[in-house]
Simulated assay, not measured.
Amino acid sequence: MSTPSIEDVRKRFIAPPGKPFDLSSRDSGDRDLFPDKKHARKSLKSDAGAIDELQDLLYATREKALLIVLQGMDTSGKSGVIRNVFAQTSPLGMKVKAFKAPTRIELGHDYLWRVHEATPRKGFVGIFDRSQYEDVLVVKVRNFAPADQVEQRYEQINQFEKHLTENGTKILKFMLHVGYEEQGIRLKERITEPHKRWKFNPADLDDRKIWPEFMKAYETMVERCSTDWAPWYVIPSDSRTRRNAAIARIIRGAMEDLKLQWPDPGYKLEDFDFG
């Protein structure tokens, strides 16, 4: 069984920029590209190793930055992606930011202030566990801001991401698409399995009660903010293994596309005395 090409994975899961997007047409349990879990794990291991080497190259050149946005409902696997896709990567060149409810200081600034502050500098991989998109998801669904303000934010976010892209940051955005039934199973695991119980938050059940509203908000988010410079990839996430394998393929491809070369500091062996 052959590993799907990077291009095949991209084409299958991208939300084409500028086109209507129907979330219901995307299967959260899609297994076509990775029908066998064992093979998916093998693909992930290979790509994780390549990502480690490519991150070393990114760090050595300090020419570009990579920002990875992970957005999804609770239990969709944001932390699992980070743990598995970057299992072999040195933390020295990584920066992970988990966005929670904004603090009083953050609320005193515009909503993108805390996001811009957390973006990676050149040479680093930055990972957002949740992101600026909370401000068109939970803020929208829970009516934490007026509708006209939320409406403005789609284009503001697009322009913010374009600014980052034009200044050396490659952006990869992944919506982790978990199904309603699978989320229910995983939430129950957080109660029944001792090592997961600390993760359980009763408020997650409140969000589950308004699942359709959240799915509509995600659908609008993807349609309005999948751009040529920062498209959305909608990743089936009912299978943790296949989710990780698909994301690793896309990240590896994006890092290879940077076409970075190892820098030459100009040193020569004969210039030094090693005793």
Rank of each mutant, 00 (worst) to 15 (best):
M1F: 12
V9N: 07
R10D: 10
R12Q: 14
F13G: 01
D22V: 14
L23P: 02
R26N: 02
S28W: 07
D30W: 02
D30N: 08
F34R: 07
F34C: 07
P35M: 11
K37N: 15
K38R: 14
K38V: 11
H39L: 14
L44C: 06
K45T: 14
K45Y: 12
D47P: 01
E53M: 12
L54G: 04
L54W: 05
L54C: 07
D56N: 14
R62A: 12
E63P: 03
K64T: 05
A65G: 14
L66Q: 04
L67S: 07
L70F: 07
L70Y: 04
D74Q: 09
S79K: 13
G80W: 07
V85Q: 10
A87F: 00
Q88D: 12
S90C: 09
K95N: 13
V96A: 10
K97Q: 14
A98S: 14
F99P: 03
K100T: 15
A101I: 12
P102W: 04
T103H: 02
I105M: 12
E106N: 09
G108I: 03
H109M: 09
D110L: 06
Y111E: 06
L112W: 07
R114A: 00
V115L: 09
V115K: 02
H116P: 02
H116N: 12
H116K: 13
A118R: 10
F124S: 10
G126S: 11
D129E: 12
S131I: 07
S131L: 05
Q132K: 11
Q132T: 10
Q132I: 11
V138A: 15
V141G: 08
V141Q: 09
R142Y: 04
Q149A: 14
V150D: 04
Q152M: 13
Q152N: 13
I157P: 00
K162R: 14
H163K: 04
H163S: 06
I171L: 09
K173N: 01
L176I: 04
L176G: 01
L176V: 04
V178N: 00
Y180R: 15
E181Q: 12
E181H: 10
E182H: 01
G184F: 06
I191V: 13
T192G: 02
K199L: 08
N201Q: 11
R208T: 07
K209D: 14
W211V: 09
M215I: 11
A217R: 06
Y218S: 06
T220V: 12
C225G: 00
S226L: 09
S226Q: 08
P231G: 02
W232A: 05
Y233I: 00
Y233K: 03
I235H: 01
S237I: 05
D238F: 01
R240N: 11
R242G: 01
R242W: 03
R243K: 14
N244Q: 15
A245T: 08
A245I: 07
A246I: 07
A248D: 06
I250H: 07
I251Q: 06
A254F: 04
A254P: 00
M255H: 05
M255E: 04
D257F: 05
L258E: 11
Q261S: 14
P263L: 06
G266V: 06
L269N: 11
L269R: 14
E270L: 02
F272Y: 15
D273P: 00
